[in-house]
């Protein structure tokens, strides 16, 4: 097994990540403005911005889901317990003892088990909660005449706001995690350059060197 610099984040994936980050920030800012937490935008601007950003994010997600399934990259997000305990132990104790992170990225496992689980939950629970409730919210006037519409709207608003708070918590932890390990910069760079240290098997190394020379340094 050899540690090599390998391009684990393709151009699309990096574009996806940073665009998503930007749109989520816009949505948070405009959304909490609509909720009444700040008045830095007027309501009409906030609605326009929030709706526009939401549609762009949905479009981006449509492409990303297509990409995940056509490139088989979805496999990175399959949850596993293998190595989970070590990772949890590291963040709870080892990190204070100067230990190294127990996880080594593999070519078809670029996330550690905790990351994989967190991102999967984000993708299949939190994001659907916010976009389904968001669309229901946006198109309220199409279903306002169904029975108990106002109670349903209360629920929709509750889910949407609750999911928003949870995403804020996720973002805070996500960003904090970047400061652990070597340095903030080293954690961010892979998502910019695409390259990170990956533990390759001799066969993977040989394959990449021969067939994908641009992906390995």
């Amino acid at each position: 097994m050899t540690i090599r610099r390998v391009r684990i984040f393709s151009l699309f994936e990096r574009f996806w990540h940073w665009t998503q980050m930007f749109l989520i920030l816009v949505l948070m800012f405009s959304g909490f403005g609509l909720h009444g937490f700040h008045h830095l935008l007027d309501f009409k601007q906030a609605v326009t911005l929030h709706t526009l950003a939401a549609f762009l994010l949905l479009l981006l997600w449509a492409f990303s889901i297509f990409w995940l399934f056509t490139t088989r990259n979805w496999r990175h997000f399959i949850p596993t317990v293998k190595g989970m305990w070590q990772v949890l132990r590291f963040y709870s104790f080892g990190i204070f003892q100067g230990e190294h992170h127990p996880y080594r990225k593999a070519y078809w496992r670029k996330h550690n088990p905790l990351q994989a689980l967190a991102y999967l939950m984000l993708k299949i629970v939190l994001f659907p909660l916010i976009w389904i409730s968001g669309l229901a919210y946006l198109f309220y006037f199409l279903w306002r005449d169904i029975p108990h519409a106002t109670q349903v709207l209360d629920g929709v608003a509750l889910v949407h706001t609750g999911a928003a708070f949870t995403i804020v918590v996720f973002v805070m932890i996500h960003v904090y995690m970047l400061t652990t390990g070597h340095s903030f910069k080293e954690h961010v760079m892979p998502m910019i350059s695409g390259f990170d240290d990956v533990d390759l098997s001799p066969e993977e190394e040989a394959y990449l060197l021969k067939d994908e020379p641009g992906v390995i340094r």
Partner: peptide, 28 residues
């Protein structure tokens, strides 16, 4: 009879949300 964004909010949800965000910040 109608939930209006900007006017209405669920007090408890906001409280829990703010505690969660502040709590996360403290843990970090």
């Amino acid at each position: 009879g109608v939930y209006m964004p900007g006017r209405d909010n669920n007090r408890w949800l906001d409280l829990i949300g703010i505690i969660a965000v502040a709590g996360t910040f403290l843990v970090i």
